[in-house]
Design a protein around this nucleic acid. Structure first.
Lengths: 237, 237
DNA sequence: AATGATTTGTGTCACTTTGCCACAAAAAAA
DNA sequence: TTTTTTTGTGGCAAAGTGACACAAATCATT
């Protein structure tokens, strides 16, 4: 679907005034990163619209797959952003002007959008981002060093960051951010990064093992100094 | 707004294909009750649509106020229900036929709806339900004895019931279900009802008091046998 | 008025979980 | 061989939890 077609057909194909946005989070070099796309001189969340014949959930998975190349990505609903004046008119205008496209103020694209924000925890190494038809670039940004972003997208990312902090206390989900096989020191570092505080390594390790959610594998072979850690993977139910 | 006007104007006034539904929960005679409305021979959740010039949040508050008479009701987002074939065609058809109204298959009302479900914890005594223009009746139903309901509305109620069980573990919010001034035995009974299990009274009371969220008031005067309990209210921040 | 039943507030005590530190084992580096 | 780094596990005091006990307060019944 090229842009012209997208503008013309979108109104018929999609549920109007409704979008799905994804905060896609990966863990790389000890930092939490978020996948963003560039349109114009600002960045935005990967997102899309819901086909009239498609469930919201399927739209979410479809959008995620399209942008990450992952088959079965983790995701979780985050929040509704439904402000009465939530429009992207200025952003689209700039995009149209820069691309020498005829800008019309009152297309569906410039109308108000209620967005269903989700977050997704992905294995950074396995994720192969794909830009959309209108995006100029993609990039991973440290959650604490976000660029200029569209509208309220920065707020959405920060909401996700805070939600992750809460969810990690009650749910076993951080392993989605690591490779299938990982070590306790890795998981420990990840949790410290998410919570932004030091966690006692001894206690953390004992607690994780005691949770029974992981099974121990042979030790990891590596060249760095120090004892070689066991590897773990999530127990299948 | 009468029904004819509602049908004709709704499309222009509201965001299409989007609704807000409320699971309004009260606590009465030791049981959790849910406020439902009757249209036709089935019951449905209080709900409504979002004006194009109104935020989702304001719509939620407006709908809640309209149906409960409460000034500043508690509410919390529950979940999105966005199935690809989520339509109320049959239910509306029956309503139109029963009321001798001309039924048209393809009005906005019969289109697919994504609903933003919320739950609201209210003081049963203070709540004065008001039925909508098209509702035949309202009633409070025990959460475990729900009547025949529209589409997936029963599923929404059950989702709320389960969510409440979870939220109560992490958040101080159950006092919304009690009068401003309440006793520890009351709060204890409420928690037991929500969780569906016995909680040690001693421990519960100590934990609640230790949380520091409540301030002790003079003892309650009552005629039943036994020691008179202290009253408490939520500490203002 | 005395006694008993009921309800509520608080105490105790064993058991578990948590926070913090220690230390030994393993393996590269010096 | 010794040192340094990393990882696994142990110990112990403090805090939290579950189960039960018991006393205080108050109405109902002799």
């Amino acid at each position: 679907m090229d842009f012209q077609e997208f503008i013309e057909q979108g109104e018929k194909l999609f549920l109007p005034n409704l979008s799905v946005d994804m905060v896609i989070i990966g863990f790389h070099e000890g930092e939490l990163k978020c996948l963003l796309l560039k349109i114009g001189d600002k960045w935005l969340l990967p997102g899309g619209y819901v086909f009239r014949t498609e469930s919201v959930e399927n739209a979410t998975v479809r959008i995620l797959r399209e942008r990450t190349g992952l088959k079965d990505p983790h995701f979780k609903f985050l929040s509704v952003f439904g402000g009465e004046d939530r429009k992207f008119t200025e952003e689209w205008k700039q995009f149209f002007v820069e691309n020498n496209l005829p800008f019309k103020e009152n297309t569906w694209l410039n109308d108000r959008f209620v967005t269903l924000a989700h977050y997704s925890l992905v294995d950074f190494e396995k994720t192969k981002p794909v830009i959309g038809n209108f995006d100029e670039a993609f990039a991973w940004f440290n959650l604490d060093e976000l660029p200029k972003m569209w509208m309220d997208h920065k707020e959405i990312v920060l909401t996700a960051k805070n939600r992750l902090k809460e969810d990690i206390q009650h749910e076993q989900l951080t392993y989605n951010l690591l490779p299938k096989e990982f070590t306790m020191p890795q998981l420990h570092g990840l949790h410290q990064t998410i919570l932004g505080e030091k966690l006692d390594r001894s206690r953390f390790q004992k607690k994780m093992i005691a949770s029974g959610a992981f099974e121990r594998l042979p030790k990891l072979q590596k060249d760095s100094p120090g004892r070689k850690p066991f590897q773990y993977r999530v127990k299948k139910a």
